[in-house]
């Protein structure tokens, strides 16, 4: 296809991505170097019959004018990146000096908002992703053994947790896990502890979110693996059987190698999706014990007093993008190498 025809076909799509994906990344990198204006203060002399007092007040009008003139705020260089809510260098330094041992230091670090969010995001990504692949694989094997009459309805039910809106899915589970919901009260009976509440314990909250993540994503891995199972050449399986391979050996030496490329594909998609974990934290109302990087950004726009912290959100966004880039590099390089002969000329 000649270049100009190609351009005619691709420009609307390319333009949309350029303006609304590439440009915003530029926009946040600029915003992250700015911070909200300080309030304009005026000293007012307040005179009463008993004498005059000097009072410092916020000049709301002047502040507003300033904000309208320079909506970006004032230039802050790397100030936002290094403050307490982000990389917190000075707090880290202090914690390192003051803490007696590693555990002390780590608990100090995980109290800082950014590191708290980062630790949960990474834990979620690296616990949910492998579990999704393993459980999805077993569901696929099990469904494949069902009589074909049951396969359709089974796949239908399996798809439900995946297509459900993440916020809705987490709410549905949350209401059941709630201390007064069915699972919550059942657990209280089992453990004979009327005060047991999954919400109150940080560890259990983490576990709950991991369980949600696996529940939500496992069907995706299942569908991909299930489709992969249909493409295994019968001859290969049969010759393995003739050679005396038992079921376990067939799985290990024929099925798993055949599905390996699919596992790479699933982990690529899962790494992307799990690193942006956000809705479950809102749905489970879990921010006291678990926050994620995406949630931090959301929170900067929802901080009570109506002021949106653009600078802070932008800095977290840049750090998040750096995080996902580091995570994705190996997989993207792999995809690049795998696809080169297919598309590249």
């Amino acid at each position: 296809m000649p270049h100009h025809t190609f351009l005619k076909f691709i420009w609307p799509s390319a333009l949309a991505m350029l303006i609304f994906i590439a440009l915003p990344i530029v926009s946040i990198s600029i915003q992250s170097f700015f911070i909200e204006h300080e309030k304009v203060l005026v000293v007012v002399e307040n005179c009463t019959p008993f004498g005059c007092k000097k009072e410092t007040r916020v000049d709301l009008e002047a502040t507003k004018v300033l904000e309208e003139e320079k909506p970006l705020g004032r230039f802050n260089w790397f100030g936002t990146y290094t403050n307490r809510n982000h990389l917190a260098f000075s707090e880290l330094n202090q914690a390192w000096k003051e803490s007696q041992n590693y555990n002390d230091f780590l608990s100090e670090v995980f109290n800082l908002p950014f590191y708290k969010a980062l630790s949960f995001t990474l834990a979620y990504t690296f616990i949910v992703t492998p579990l999704v692949i393993i459980i999805g694989f077993f569901i696929a094997l099990a469904v494949n053994r069902l009589p074909s009459f049951f396969k359709g309805p089974t796949i239908f039910i399996c798809l439900l947790p995946m297509i459900i809106t993440p916020l809705i899915g987490s709410l549905v589970l949350f209401w059941m896990i709630d201390a007064e919901g069915i699972i919550g009260s059942l657990l209280q009976i089992i453990f004979n502890d009327p005060n047991l509440s999954l919400k109150a314990s940080p560890t259990l909250t983490w576990v709950m979110l991991f369980v949600y993540g696996v529940w939500h994503h496992a069907p995706f891995a299942f569908v991909v693996f299930y489709a992969g199972l249909q493409t295994i050449p019968r001859d290969t399986l049969e010759s393995a059987m003739i050679d005396g391979a038992n079921r376990w050996e067939q799985t290990l030496y024929v099925i798993i190698p055949h599905l390996m490329p699919l596992a790479v594909f699933i982990s690529l998609i899962q790494l992307m999706d799990n690193f942006r974990v956000f809705e479950p934290i809102v749905g489970f109302n879990a921010q006291a014990s678990a926050t994620s990087l995406s949630w931090l950004i959301y929170n900067d726009f929802r901080s009570g007093d109506g002021n949106m912290l653009f600078g802070s959100a932008a800095a977290t966004s840049i750090l998040t993008i750096i995080g996902i880039s580091i995570l994705m590099t190996p997989v993207i390089v792999r995809t690049w190498k795998a696809n080169k002969p297919v598309i590249g000329v």
Binding site: F6, A14, V26, I28, M272, I324, T335, I343
Partner: peptide, 26 residues
Amino acid sequence: AFWILIAALIFRAMPHITLVSGYLLP
């Protein structure tokens, strides 16, 4: 064409909310 696809893959990886924080002020 191959490079556009790789760029699209990288764009796919961007958490949506980081993009939203780029839109809001403009």
